[in-house]
């Protein structure tokens, strides 16, 4: 049973800087798992608009953010007036997973998403391999 720390997934919808395959596969596997999660269209957009919704997101204990470079994510939150706790980042209580350089497997492994976490309906459903990013 994987731990249920909060997960925030960024789709990076407004630029093609994340490898499509990685962000699609991570999202598909997140959806197929039994993990609760928050997902946003684009953290950069929220930061640019200083979206107040970033404040409660930033304050979740044990938050894991699936996005891009940790330095970028840290200062995007800060620029929006929703700074991530520096100490929690140092100690790994807040974790930022980088879909720009890491593989989908590596990201999902760090999220604790394994095949056993897949929703039982999905696990027995071989018809959607394309959507989940898996090869038939």
């Amino acid at each position: 049973m994987s731990e249920k720390r909060p997960i925030l997934y960024c789709r990076c919808a407004y630029a093609k800087v994340l490898p499509e395959e990685v962000k699609d596969q991570v999202l598909a596997r997140l959806i197929d798992s039994d993990q609760p999660f928050e997902s946003v269209s684009d953290l950069c957009e929220m930061s640019a608009r200083k979206d107040p919704g970033l404040v409660p997101l930033s304050q979740q204990p044990g938050l894991r953010i699936v996005a891009c470079y940790p330095r970028a994510v840290k200062w995007l939150f800060s620029a929006a007036g929703a700074p991530l706790d520096s100490n929690e980042m140092k100690t790994g209580q807040i974790e930022i997973l980088n879909m720009r350089i890491e593989s989908a497997d590596a990201v999902c492994s760090k999220l604790g998403i394994t095949s056993s976490d897949l929703n039982s309906t999905q696990a027995s459903d071989p018809s959607d391999t394309q959507a989940s990013g898996a090869k038939p």
Binding site: L27, I31, D32, P36, S39, D125, S127, D128
Partner: peptide, 25 residues
């Protein structure tokens, strides 16, 4: 549980259109 194939189409589509999507269990 929501139908997996529906979830898999709906979530990325909504995110690409600018929505915030939350899943709770």
């Amino acid at each position: 549980p929501i139908d997996p194939s529906l979830r898999r189409r709906l979530v990325p589509t909504l995110l690409d259109r600018g929505y915030t999507v939350t899943r709770i269990t």
